[in-house]
């Protein structure tokens, strides 16, 4: 049985929970996997720390929490500072490169950086940051297929913003593919 544990993190308002919902829906409805999503749930406000966890498996997920996340998506400094050290050797660390100042080189990790907020602003609104990040995440982790992710969007983003969200996803995805062919996270 292959199991993958993923943590999505950032600050409230970035669409972190939505990232996990989209990925979980894509995996369990369109990629024939089992996915369990749990989230930090509290009286949080926009701007405070926020995280969601996804356990992905070929079989039914019994234990619903992550114990050793292999992938961390960190869209804020606080999220990066708090969670990066959870990653094991070879773990994938994806950070928002304009928002996260790295505390080291992380030679033991696969470090990938994406200017998701900047790309989203170029598309017209930083609200699309999470979809750019998800596109990048999809390309570099290969945990989920791009096709499944796009199929998962209706119902999870407002209808009138579906096209632009797909565009944001594709922007991030393309950047991720290029980053991979360039041989790593350097950008």
């Amino acid at each position: 049985m292959s199991t993958q544990e993923i943590r999505f993190s950032g600050f409230g308002g970035q669409g972190i929970i939505r990232c996990a919902l989209i990925t979980g829906k894509a995996l369990s409805l369109y990629d024939d996997k089992f996915a369990t999503m749990t989230q930090s749930f509290g009286p949080e406000a926009r701007g405070s720390a926020c995280a969601a966890q996804l356990v992905v498996s070929d079989e039914r997920v019994l234990y619903p929490y992550i114990t050793c996340p292999g992938i961390l998506l960190a869209l804020s400094q606080e999220a990066y500072d708090k969670y990066w050290s959870e990653l094991p050797k070879g773990g994938i660390l994806i950070v928002e490169q304009d928002l996260v100042k790295l505390s080291g080189e992380h030679p033991d990790l696969v470090l990938m950086r994406v200017p998701a907020t900047r790309f989203a602003e170029e598309l017209g609104n930083r609200l699309f940051t999470n979809l750019v990040a998800l596109g990048f995440f999809t390309a570099v982790t290969k945990v989920v297929t791009a096709d499944a992710m796009k199929k998962a969007l209706p119902g999870l983003v407002p209808d009138r913003f579906l096209k632009i969200n797909i565009k944001a996803f594709e922007k991030g995805y393309e950047y991720g593919i290029n980053a991979l062919s360039a041989g790593g996270g350097a950008s």
């Binding site: 996990a20 369990s28 996915a35 999503m37 749990t38």
Partner: peptide
């Protein structure tokens, strides 16, 4: 419980 209530699965 809150955990099952807020947990997302298929």
């Amino acid at each position: 419980d809150e955990t099952v209530g807020h947990m997302h699965e298929k």
